[in-house]
Computed example of a mutant assay.
Amino acid sequence: MTDVAEPQGTVPEDANDHCVGPEHELAGRASGCEGCPNQEICSTQASGPDPDLPIVAERLRNVRHKILILSGKGGVGKSTFTGQLAFALAGDEEKEIGVVDIDICGPSLPRIMGCEREEIHRSAAGWSPIYVQDNLGLMSIGFMLPDEDSAVIWRGPKKNGLIKQFLKDVDWGTGTDNTLDYMLFDTPPGTSDEHLSVVQLLRGSGISGAVIVTTPQEVALQDVRKEIDFCRKANVPIIGVVENMCGFVCPTCHGESRIFYPTTGGASALCKDLDIPLLGSIPLDPSIGRACDYGSSFIDTHADSPAAKAYVQIIHKIKQILESNI
């Protein structure tokens, strides 16, 4: 490894066993960073402040709440939750909602939100998001691909560059007289390039918090613990945990049975152990999958279902927590 000048500051005593965090001045160079898959990303960050941070902060200065939707493991319904949360928030016509899909290699939100065949347009003010409703806009790489089956085969720097463009070059209409009430960021599974990029780029404008989505079984919860650890080390407030697919609800009799059995107590036990709010549990419902395939709001089309009522309760809690933190 090339010798580097030793920065000022001291390595925490537990650096041999724990990550110092991506925001630390020794990130990527502390002894605890050895063997970490993100070591090169952290250690090769440009020294000094990113000159684009003030541009991002200015572009997003009128966004009231910026929420990261995270999951440690893929397939737990994170993008589904993001899409339905966006639809629900946009149900209030007085609110303006923006969604940024930073799952660069798996952009599913254009289909989930019913706008997969749209194209992005550029104006003097920047890229224009695709508007699903008058008060609900979406930006995704899915709108830039030649067709929906095209793979995005990019290394980290190119993905990070696109995320930066999404934050500094998209015109959300948040000028002097307009405010975006909620901006949701749908992230890929894990704690990698995209997560580090969005956290660092939002440093100047602030992050309201993260919602972490999981399923009840231990194989998912073990990755959620890593996601929680990432949030704490990156100084991202945790709004709470959503337990998805916690049971199957029969569409005829509404009877419920367990599909993913919570062998270690599920999200409830995890939240109690780590002192994190459990926002709620959403049962499996075949209608959720159909709503995503057709790009519609499940909460609107199946308002009386147990899953829709669970969504509404969770969204109410998220609003309460955000408003209490202002």
Rank of each mutant, 00 (worst) to 15 (best):
G106Y: 07
G106N: 03
L109T: 05
L109I: 14
P110C: 09
P110A: 11
P110Y: 15
P110G: 10
R111E: 05
R111M: 03
G114Y: 06
G114E: 00
C115W: 06
C115K: 06
E116H: 14
R117T: 13
R117A: 13
E118L: 07
E118W: 06
E119G: 14
I120E: 07
H121T: 15
R122M: 12
S123G: 13
S123N: 13
A124E: 09
A124P: 08
A124V: 15
A125I: 13
A125R: 15
G126P: 12
G126C: 05
W127Y: 14
P129H: 00
P129G: 01
I130V: 08
Y131K: 06
Y131I: 06
V132N: 00
Q133F: 13
D134L: 12
N135A: 13
N135T: 10
N135Y: 08
L136P: 00
L136R: 04
L136H: 05
G137W: 04
G137A: 09
G137Q: 01
L138D: 00
M139C: 03
S140W: 05
I141F: 10
I141W: 07
I141E: 01
F143D: 00
M144I: 07
D147C: 07
D147L: 06
D149G: 04
D149S: 15
D149M: 12
S150I: 10
S150M: 11
S150T: 13
A151R: 00
A151Q: 05
I153P: 00
R155W: 02
R155P: 01
G156M: 09
P157H: 11
P157D: 02
K158T: 07
K159I: 09
N160F: 11
G161F: 03
G161L: 11
L162R: 14
L162C: 10
K164V: 08
K164M: 11
Q165V: 14
Q165R: 15
Q165W: 10
L167G: 01
K168L: 10
K168Y: 04
V170M: 10
V170F: 12
V170P: 14
